Simulated assay, not measured.
Amino acid sequence: MADRQAIEATVHLYVEGMAFANEAALKKAFHPKSSIIGHYQNAVEWLSRDEFIAAIIEEGAAPPGTQPYMDIESIDISGDAATVKVTDEFAGMRFTDYLSLLKIEGRWTIVSKLYHLHI
């Protein structure tokens, strides 16, 4: 149960970091070598963690007091590896994210984000 709670905390850190353009939170949630991949504006978008964070910051933060939308649909854990399916919203867009996490030095971190943008 402790792993599940720690994974959920990482997902919350990611969603809130994205909603409020919090660079420190996003850097804590994502591994430095992570990748963010999906279709955006009719093209495959393949970003590094730092490119993703820069795009989030450029878009800007939600107003203070906003409650970010997040629905964790599934968590699957096998030892030190896990996947999470989460639906969230950013900048008026709804995404389904498939997050791959790895437990590194006792802490769960996102190593890959594959997303679908709902139209």
Rank of each mutant, 00 (worst) to 15 (best):
M1S: 13
M1N: 09
D3F: 11
D3V: 03
Q5R: 10
Q5W: 07
A6V: 00
A6R: 07
I7S: 00
E8M: 05
V11L: 05
H12V: 13
H12I: 13
Y14L: 09
E16T: 08
G17Q: 06
M18F: 06
M18H: 04
F20Q: 02
A21K: 04
A21W: 12
N22D: 15
N22I: 01
E23T: 09
E23R: 15
A24I: 09
A24Y: 04
A24L: 06
A25T: 04
A25C: 07
L26S: 10
L26E: 11
L26A: 05
K27E: 02
K27A: 11
K27N: 15
F30S: 09
F30T: 01
F30A: 11
H31W: 14
P32C: 08
S34K: 06
S34E: 05
S34W: 05
I36Q: 13
I36N: 13
I37R: 10
G38M: 07
G38I: 04
H39V: 12
Y40M: 11
N42Y: 12
A43L: 10
A43D: 09
E45K: 09
W46T: 12
L47W: 11
L47C: 06
R49K: 09
F52A: 08
F52N: 14
F52Q: 09
I53M: 00
I53A: 04
A55S: 15
A55C: 08
A55N: 15
I57K: 15
I57F: 00
E59G: 05
G60P: 02
G60S: 07
A62S: 15
T66H: 08
Q67I: 08
Q67W: 01
Y69V: 11
M70H: 09
I72G: 00
I72E: 02
E73I: 07
S74A: 15
S74D: 09
I75C: 06
D76P: 01
I77Q: 10
G79M: 03
A81G: 01
A81V: 15
A81Q: 11
A82W: 02
T83R: 05
T83F: 03
V84E: 03
V84R: 03
K85V: 12
K85R: 12
V86K: 02
V86R: 03
T87Y: 06
D88Q: 13
D88E: 14
E89H: 13
A91Q: 13
A91C: 07
A91R: 08
M93K: 12
R94D: 08
T96K: 07
D97R: 07
Y98W: 06
Y98D: 04
L99M: 13
L99V: 06
S100E: 10
S100M: 03
S100C: 10
L101N: 02
L102I: 14
K103T: 05
K103C: 01
K103G: 00
E105W: 10
G106D: 04
R107E: 14
R107F: 01
W108H: 04
W108V: 00
T109W: 05
V111A: 00
K113S: 07
K113V: 06
K113G: 00
L114P: 02
Y115Q: 01
Y115S: 12
H116Q: 12
H116Y: 14
H118I: 03
I119F: 15
I119K: 15
